[in-house]
């Protein structure tokens, strides 16, 4: 297929002094693809995500992103304003802790509207309508629009964070343990919501998690990391049902069967 990958990561390496964050990671992510990155704490999956999203400078490698106007460009060599512009338009980042991704002192509506205002929306009524629409899409009662997220439950905060991120119509979403710290029942609802949004909007996403059930439901393909190295990649159900690497086998067999 001659489709341009949305993201083309080449030989990405990040060291913390002598310690390895992630080592020689390469992959291509195509439009509409959802990739899960799994591994235990310290495996380098969060380091990788933060490098990809421009939060951490990697030591080596290239990250080519297929920009709307100029085609593939290395996000590591583009200027910071350009990179940050991507960060609030074409990219979205869903943090594990909604407090890291929300403005806790700003109302739910203001949180959703911020990205619109950041790219120049100056009509209050339109901004408010868009915010209302998005709150509905993530199943937050629009009566709560003017409440601060501090008054929301953890699940609602997470859904608000997703609305805030998706309102600008991004093409690539980074998610760091999006369901971590939530009750199992709340997790299921959130996953279903995410799955629907990803499919409907044709989003590409990279989801970092240690929860294999999450990737089974959301991810098209998987990347398994251990000690900074990618040890296995492939179709999600193939990696989970027929793991090849010792570490993946351990990971899969360690999940409690319900």
């Amino acid at each position: 297929m001659s489709v341009t990958p949305l993201l083309d990561v080449q030989h990405l390496t990040k060291r913390y002094g002598t310690r390895i964050g992630c080592s020689d990671v390469s992959f291509k992510l195509y439009p509409g693809e959802v990739m899960g990155v799994v591994g235990e704490s310290g495996s380098g999956k969060s380091t990788l995500l933060n490098c990809l999203a421009g939060h951490l400078p990697p030591d080596e490698g290239r990250i080519l992103f297929d920009t709307r106007t100029e085609g593939p460009r290395d996000t590591l060599t583009m200027s910071e304003p350009e990179r940050r512009m991507l960060g609030r338009t074409d990219w979205a980042f869903v943090h594990q802790n909604p407090r890291d991704g929300l403005r806790m002192r700003v109302s739910a509506g203001g949180n959703v509207g911020e990205r619109l205002m950041a790219v120049g929306a100056r009509h209050y009524g339109n901004i408010r309508n868009a915010a209302e629409d998005w709150l509905e899409r993530v199943e937050i009662d629009t009566d709560r629009m003017d409440d601060r997220p501090a008054q929301f439950s953890g699940g609602m905060q997470q859904r608000l964070q997703i609305a805030r991120n998706l309102v600008s119509g991004p093409r690539l979403v980074f998610m760091d343990e999006p369901t971590g710290g939530l009750d199992v029942s709340v997790q299921a609802r959130l996953l279903d919501l995410l799955r629907g949004l990803v499919r409907k909007m044709g989003l590409s996403a990279i989801i970092v998690t240690h929860d294999l059930a999450v990737v089974r439901l959301l991810a098209d393909r998987l990347m398994v990391m251990k000690s900074g190295d990618v040890v296995e990649t492939g179709l999600t159900d193939q990696v989970l049902d027929d793991p090849q690497h010792a570490y993946t086998q351990l990971l899969v067999s360690s999940v409690l069967q319900v």
């Binding site: 910071e80 304003p81 940050r84 609030r88 403005r103 700003v106 109302s107 509506g109 203001g110 509207g113 911020e114 990205r115 619109l116 205002m117 950041a118 790219v119 929306a121 100056r122 209050y124 901004i127 408010r128 629009m145 003017d146």
Partner: peptide, 18 residues
């Protein structure tokens, strides 16, 4: 430095919302 001033309008938005 990067002229990212969306936040200023968030402040005004909050005003009107409230």
């Amino acid at each position: 430095a990067l002229e990212e001033y969306g936040l200023m309008h968030v402040r005004l938005y909050e005003n009107i919302a409230k």
